[in-house]
Amino acid sequence: MTLIREDGAVEDRFTRADTIDAALAVDGPVLIPLAIADEFAKARPGAEFGVSLPGSTPIEDVKPQLGKIALVAIEFPAFADGRGFSLAKKIAREGFSGTLRASGPLIADEFADALACGFTEVELPETMANRQPVQQWLAAKDTMTEHYQSGYGRGPSILQKRLAARKGA
């Protein structure tokens, strides 16, 4: 797995565990399925952990966990499945301040969109990272300097910039 953030590749601090037993055996931050989150939190109060869930998950199912977890990994079954983008928006809207991870066979061409929807990082299978190395991701992220949509990404949208320019003039 390769983990890419806005400024390049980073080490993954989290260890994935699919069952509660495996999760409890891990030292340090662990990434577990949403279904065992309650059980884990009870067994390890205060431990740093993240949950993984598919992009189709209703926001109501994740919401109760958001205050307790450090990371949400949204699983993309395919690069063309855009549900994860909407779920990221909904999670960010709940005020989640931890790490939002897009996990799956995404392509570099989606990096800017993922960041604009609130993702912090992308976790790629090795086969993908071999074909599209980190440099391609960083380059793809910057091919478009501006966006029209207010409420996405960090900087102001084109619509907002026009308004500001007129006010300043």
Binding site: G82, E110, D113, C117, Y152, G153
Partner: peptide, 13 residues
């Protein structure tokens, strides 16, 4: 047209 152009969330409908 402007709003929908490369909309970050709605390009993989």
């Amino acid at each position: 047209r402007q709003w929908s152009s490369l909309h970050p969330e709605f390009v993989w409908l």
